[in-house]
Amino acid sequence: MNIIEVTNLTKTFSGINVIDDLSLSIKKGSIYGLLGPNGSGKTTLIRILLGILNYDKGEIFIIKKGMSSKETLKNIGYMPQQSSLYQDLTVFDNIKFFASIYNAEKNINFILDLVELDEIKNKKVSRLSGGMKQRCSLACALVHKPKLLFLDEPTVGVDPLLRAQFWSYFNEISKNNDTTIVVSSHVMDEAEHCDKLALIRFGKLIAEGSVSHLLEKTNSNNLENAFLKLSK
């Protein structure tokens, strides 16, 4: 069963198609990767799916309710590319604020444990390291245990150890909560964690499928080569 269906989506900025006739479908409970270089349209696509941006043409279905209505958004979590936190509030106050929007205050302690921020929950966000801010940002996106989670380049600027930890969180959430995760990345080796990938370039979908399917299709031994072959 698909949780997201996008058909012939087009978005134009100043006469340029930043999303160009793009269609894709995402299965419920899966981890779906949007892979492509910087500026390929991944963030724009996520913002359109979240209702932050309008689009010019096409159709979108999310959780079977059309484009993100406020009702649909109750079941969606979003971790933007920049940490997007209130710098002068503590970790706890940031998470509490987002929890209160979704009536999910009861999950605060669980989420603090999950992202291992319990010990520093009373520290102001402005005093945290980049990695800790990312964890706090993830906690804010997860606190209401969403059915669908959008992660926009969640591991940018994160060290390899924390990156591995993040992927273990994502897998845990996906398995335990049956949460569908849509994650964008420009790092090809992260794609291996995804059940299905969309390779995007200049706003166009150049290929869609599992890692093994894409490698087989392009007769490549890694995704970087596969991406280069598909881009030609």
Binding site: R47, L50, G51, I52, S68, K70, E71, L73, K74, I76, Y78, P80, Q81, Q82, S83, S84, L85, Y86, Q87, F98, I101, Y102, C140, F150
Partner: peptide, 14 residues
């Protein structure tokens, strides 16, 4: 500028 408004817009807040 710090991106929190984007987060609020993507939430059920009107």
């Amino acid at each position: 500028s710090e991106g929190t408004l984007e987060r609020l817009i993507a939430s059920p807040l009107s």
